[in-house]
Amino acid sequence: MRTLTIRQRETLGQLARHAILLPITLIWMIPIWMMFAVSLRPVSEMFSSGIGVVNPTLDNYAVVWRDNDLLIHFKNSLIITGSSVLLIMILASACAYALSFIRFRGSSTLFLFMLMTMTLPVPAVVVPLIQVLKRLNLLNNYLGLIGPYVALGIPFATVIMKNAFDGFPREIEEAARIDGCSNWGIFLRIVLPLNKPSLAVIAIWSFMQTWNEFILAMLTMTEVVMKPLILVPIIYNGMYLSFPGHLFAILSICTVPIIVFYLSMQKHFVSGLTAGAVKG
C-alpha cells in the first residue's frame, strides 16, 4: 500500500465509491424501470413475471390514451397547482414584506401562528376542512383545493421569505424611501427582484406539496372530470386489474411530466429542499 502514488490512491478511492454507489443505484432504479417495462409489454407477455420486456410495444399507451381523457386530469392538475403556487408566491412574499419591513401591532403573534402551522399534518384538519368546503359550496370546484392549498402553503413560504427579507440590506430600503418610493414600490421594484432565489425555493417547494397532495384532493374532487392527475391511478387501479400493462401505461403517463420537470430543474429542487431545514 505504501508504494501507491497519490494518483493511484485517488483512482482506488473512486473505484471504491463506485463499488458502493453502483449496486445501490441499480436496486433503486428497479421500481421505476419496472413501471416502464410492464407498460411496454405486449398483451402476450402481460403476465410474464420478472422485470424485463422482450418485445416492447406502445400498444398499451395507445389504448389508455384512446379510452381515457387523461388530458383533462393533467389540465386539472395544472390549473390547481399553477394557481396555488402563484398565489402562495404573491401572498406569502407580501405578508413576509409586512412582517419584515413594516412594524405593526400583532406582527409577532401572526408570525408565531405561522411557525406553529408550518408543518401542520393535512390529514389532521381534513374533517373540519371538508365541512367548511361543503358549506362554501366548493366541493368539486377548483377553488375548493386552491384555497386550502394556498392557506396551508402560506406559513412555510412566509417564514422562508421573511428570513430572506430580514437579511436584506436596510441601506437600499432607506435610499429608496428617501427617493419617495412607497412600500409597494420598494416591495415590487426592489425587494422582490433581488430575492428571486428565495422565490424559486418557495415555488418548487409549494409545487411539490400541491402536485402530490392526495387526501384532500380525494375528498374534495368526487366527480371524475374534476380529479387531478394524482387520483387517476386510483380510478384505474381496480378497472385495469386484469390488464397490468394498461395500468402501468397510465402510471408512466402520470410520472413522465414530473420526472422531466425535476430533471430540468434539478438545481432548484436541491436548493428548495435544503433551504427549509439547513439555511432557513
Binding site: 421500481p31 402536485w211 392526495f214 391511478p233 402510471l251 414530473i258 420526472i259 425535476y262 429542487f269
Partner: peptide, 11 residues
C-alpha cells in the same frame, strides 16, 4: 418526486 399513489401501485 414521484406521486405516492404511483409508487404504491408499483410496489
Amino acid at each position: 418526486v414521484i406521486s405516492p399513489v404511483v409508487i404504491g401501485i408499483i410496489w
